[in-house]
Nucleic acid binder design. Structure first.
Lengths: 310, 310
DNA sequence: GTTCCGCATGAATCGATAG
DNA sequence: ACTATCGATTCATGCGGAA
């Protein structure tokens, strides 16, 4: 084993501050004070799955590897904060492995409450064919809390579709959507503006999102909408978001664009650099195109909502 | 406690035989021979949920109540057979209860393999609003097997939609679909005929189905498409399907229409009668309308596939 | 014979109130 | 205190009656 580089950088966007740790996860977590984080959201290395990049954790030892980390997360999370864990068990010898079941049971012994399990339905799941199973099109989004009372801002993720709007939407052909979408601020945008606020409903615990194929740099791509949705749901502006397995930095970017502070921890220098660069690019781009962004924002938001809650 | 009525009736449809037991589940199971069942599919009473009708099982005692039953199911299932368990944990004191996690772990100790977990996305989930959670829109469909090698007929549930058909479908307005659907054998039917065989894809492990509210007789309606889909996937004509918690008899009807034999067990006389009557009505109706059904079958099948894999 | 509209109906959960 | 019951909340679906 080589000795790991460690460093810390701080970037800002508008009023938000984003810290980046190049460090072992546990080491960096120990530098964070008790009860300071509003939301932890992460997609840890899946057992044995990303062996080539992360070293891979033996499925049978996954729980014992992860428990010290969840213990630290419990410590740094505010009493009314939330922990969202994106994970899916792998198949081993023809069976779904049980490490996630055991992880949930063990985390409850640590003091975590297992509040809810959201489903991420991956609309464009990985292709493939096996004689004894179909393609895996969903992942778990486990919600844990320290207390039955936690912060939840449901109105921030309301979905602008009722019966009436839905029928109209179905009657729009796909080419219509595309054409109008490209004409910024014109037809489609105006129509959306009419819908928004007319028929807002609360979403359910099933999210419909496509994986992002664009960022091939990091093997586990979780789409920007995923952290964005939970950040809007469980934090307000100025709150602090933590991702202990930052990867290519999706959580940091999502946090900054929503003007939340963030801490991201990544052990591999390659990914750390990718995360830093992506953050700079995305926030800078945002600043340069601020006028266009403002014009687009209503449409973008609507389209994102659609993608989330198809 | 009153002494329960017990009886057994046998009904037939085409070449298939359907047995109905009015009996305690365990008692009836013990009359079934070892290694004779090709598919067990059932939706047991959820913990504490149907208290008014089924007596309700205490969540903390759910596992110990269910394990003797799964032991019998393991005995009667053929080596290459499959057990599909439809279940969802309830919320207790703000947390998702862990009895299903424990059930899976305990069933593995009995010798079951936990092969897969399908998701049933309930499009019309129960409404409601709470300060700390969204509506629950999914249920588990746990797949268990006795052996890594099991029968699976994937081609039987192929979905007739590729990218090309998908795009065309989106461009069809809803009213177009309805209108053409009503003209039997005309436009829509022909178009389907063009698609079938052109773009067949395998489905994923996420099923999109609405619950059936039409059958008001039984509180827990699982939609006919659900057992139908798994029956097609895991059995062939003439095979034997078992539902130890028959309820209003959906599994028996689905089995008969697909010409599989079936055994259904129901402890409550009210539901037993409903199941018998529904079976008679559905199979009889089917026979009367056999010509129309044959004409419709291609379309019906397509529409059902659409509903399953939206 | 169709199509459209209105309405009842759920495998729910929380918090307040009552025993 | 601890348990049991009840009202409030909410929306996709399918049925029935009417145009």
């Amino acid at each position: 084993m080589t000795i790991l580089d460690t460093k810390k950088e701080i970037l800002t966007y508008k009023d938000s501050t984003s810290e980046f740790y190049l460090s072992d996860c546990l080491d960096a977590l120990k530098k964070i004070k008790d009860n300071t984080v509003d939301l932890v959201i992460t997609s840890p290395p899946y057992a044995d799955q990303r062996k080539s990049t992360y070293g891979g954790i033996d499925p049978d030892r996954y729980v014992e590897w992860f428990l010290p980390i969840t213990k630290e997360l419990l410590r740094v999370l505010k009493p009314k904060g939330t922990f969202i864990l994106n994970i899916k068990e792998k198949v081993l010898e023809g069976e779904r492995h049980t490490y996630i079941l055991n992880l949930i049971l063990e985390m409850r012994k640590q003091g975590w409450l297992w509040t809810e399990e959201f489903i991420w339905h991956k609309k464009n799941c990985h292709p493939g064919k096996w004689p004894n199973r179909f393609r895996d099109a969903w992942e778990r989004l486990l919600q844990f809390n320290k207390d039955r009372k936690f912060n939840m801002y449901q109105d921030a993720v309301k979905v602008p579709i009722g019966d009436w709007a839905k029928t109209r939407l179905k009657n729009l052909s796909e080419t219509d959507m595309k054409r109008d979408n490209s004409r910024v601020g014109s037809g489609f945008g105006k129509r959306i503006a009419n819908w928004v606020g007319k028929e807002l409903v609360y979403p359910s615990n099933v999210l419909h999102l496509a994986t992002e194929s664009s960022n091939k740099n990091h093997s586990a791509t979780f789409p920007m909408e995923l952290p964005s949705w939970f950040i809007k749901l469980f934090t307000k502006e100025g709150d602090l978001v933590l991702d202990p397995f930052l990867g290519s930095g999706t959580t940091s970017v999502a946090s900054a664009l929503l003007e939340r502070d963030s801490i991201g921890i990544e052990i591999l220098p390659e990914y750390y650099e990718i995360a830093i660069n992506r953050f700079k690019k995305n926030t800078q781009q945002r600043v340069n195109k601020i006028k266009i962004d403002l014009k687009l924002s209503a449409e973008e938001d609507f389209v994102n909502q659609l993608k989330l809650y198809g």
